[in-house]
Design a protein around this nucleic acid. Structure first.
Lengths: 348, 348
DNA sequence: CAACTTTCTGCCAACGTTGTCGTCCGCCGT
DNA sequence: ACGGCGGACGACAACGTTGGCAGAAAGTTG
């Protein structure tokens, strides 16, 4: 017997499967991927051999041979940690299936130069494509830098994506409208709205959704208190205080994200208002925060992990496409999550 | 000119660098990794060529040729989302440097069979090693399954790791003692403690640290209210209510994690107690929650990302070691984060 | 200066997979 | 019945890197 090889990992390869099934390695490969032009009997034999030997393809060899994109960038700034972890889970799952690596890069700064800088650091590491979760999906400097380097990117969760961009999102407008309708259906007629950070188009879309539902119900939009927030907990405190200081405070507050909703609940408690008996509060995003507060928050759930997966898949399709596809958009379904922070308004 | 190759990626390879530097590909490889036995002049020439051509090694080819471990499992259950995102960031960074893939698997269930099941699913995907963040780092079924399959693993953040295990952690005992001392230094003499989930040894260690600091200060341990919690927000509510219902409630509450501390703050607010004027509350972990509440939480920060990196590195060392190293342990530094939820006790 | 040791460096093969292209076989139409 | 055609499959090379070995260069000693 010849000594096998100096550095054999002893793992099962296509060759082993091919021998077992009595076919060639190429046929095994064909069965494993897609499997066009393989006779049914052959396929079954191969599948049986795979099962018997417990074969799993070597992803390194696969990437090498196929010459596929292997480094995908993910530029994150500081969305809520809960958002990021869900996002990473989805992206990782898709990346592993595709056999590519995720390259993370943090971009903490707000300033344009900082964002451009982080992006350049990225370009130099030879990533073939970039995924941009919010709020960076809307950052001008980042996109300009990628454009200049000729690197394709996918924006995630933009409210209103520009024409010709690759993006994955939910329908912020419809979700916000549905939430507003839920409040109206409960009997609220005086609803405060805390807007999101204006640097994201989803803020505007959510506000639009709110307005549309109000008018659709025949209520007077101008009578609704609206405060500007910035998606941060602190901005939520300021906005809610302003709202509750009004001569006629609202009976419900719709905050554009969970952090600000949590702030509203905190402010209400501090003023001796009970939630939801005295004041209903609802949020948006369904982050972990929504269930680590009391009462638990009624909110809108985005399928974050699924959005990340869709983004990565879209990006890989783009990279592997022989010709540049001009534009792709995917809108995933959101979900209204009803918990305990919302009740009919107190009797006047 | 000969047409290059049917599937040339046009990327820079070692060959290009070698040609540019006037050496062989092997020498380039040696310079890139470690660079033992290369003359200084040669090294410089190679580095110059690398810089000039902007070369970056192909990780797929590298993994393939070196035959290194490429699939590392990460079995996560449901620690706080903030914890997981930090953990993933650290693990991903290390994984990319090492050129290996992270395989995630969720393990939501509490029941032993569910945990064993999730682990088996893992074993079948041919992961070479597994990282176990808390609370799974202490799960008997998971570890038994891995042991049976002969897959090495690294436990992260166990309080008191067993002999002969690979693990990365902080000193929970010292951290809890330091936090307790901080409260005592502020003047508190009557401090309540909410214990963590008994399924994790870090809970016991944190409690030990608390006790040690109390006795060290000459206070009577038996006089301190202690309630059992389970690291969840809800368990924190129950524990804090019990504590504040006491005839002589404590002036400060030390919760074994941030979620339970947030619950304590919520309960206090609901009873009209101001934090920190009437009651000080401190937590442990420094998750995102600590800064999305009001007041912001004094807590202990674990270097989560660094722990994940250390765990992955340790695991790879283990896998590549020719002989099984018997035992490795790494204790990273924690940090006391002082914020606003803590003040001297009210005058009696 | 010769003989020997040590440090460097290059050639070849191998890692496990997929793309290309050619061959073979059977089926169909005429 | 024969030529053509297309589907199924295999042989071979290539992907970019690293390990083993051998040979060259440099340094050391008598």
């Amino acid at each position: 017997m010849s000594k096998p090889s100096r550095r054999s990992r002893g793992s099962i390869t296509v060759q082993d499967v091919a021998r077992e099934a009595g076919v060639s390695a190429m046929t095994v490969s064909r069965v494993v991927n897609g499997g066009t032009n393989v006779r049914e009997a052959t396929r079954e034999a191969v599948l049986a051999a795979i099962a018997k030997l417990n074969y799993s393809p070597n992803s390194a060899a696969r990437s090498l041979a196929a010459g596929e994109a292997t480094q995908i960038g993910l530029l994150y700034s500081n969305p809520s940690a809960a958002y990021l972890s869900q996002f990473l889970i989805g992206a990782l799952a898709a990346a592993r299936r595709a056999g590519c690596h995720l390259v993370l890069e943090a971009c903490e700064g707000e300033r344009p130069e900082e964002q451009a800088e982080a992006t350049r650091g990225f370009v130099q590491t030879h990533v073939q494509g970039v995924i941009l979760p919010p709020p960076l999906s809307e950052s001008g400097p980042v996109r300009a830098e990628l454009e200049a380097a000729g690197i394709p990117w996918v924006s995630v969760a933009m409210g209103l994506p520009p024409e010709g961009s690759l993006n994955v999102r939910i329908d912020d407008f419809a979700a916000a409208a549905a939430m507003t309708r839920h409040l109206i259906d409960m009997g609220h007629r005086h609803i405060g709205f805390i807007r999101g950070n204006p640097n994201q188009t989803s803020s505007a879309e959510r506000y639009r959704g709110f307005c549309a539902a109000i008018e659709e119900a025949g209520l007077e939009l101008a009578a609704m208190p609206v405060e500007q927030g910035f998606f941060t907990f602190r901005s939520g405190i300021v906005a809610s205080e302003a709202m509750l200081d009004l001569p006629k405070p609202p009976t419900a507050i719709f905050a554009s994200n969970d952090d600000m909703a949590a702030a509203a609940v905190g402010v209400a408690h501090r003023r001796g208002l009970h939630v939801p008996q005295d004041l209903s509060v609802v949020g948006f995003d369904d982050t972990a925060l929504a269930t680590t507060m009391w009462p638990e928050l009624t909110t809108v759930r985005q399928p974050i992990a699924a959005m990340a997966e869709a983004a990565l898949t879209m990006l890989l399709d783009e990279l592997r496409a022989p010709v540049r596809t001009d534009h792709a958009e995917q809108v995933l379904a959101h979900q209204l999550i009803v918990r305990e922070s919302c009740a009919p308004p107190p009797k006047a």
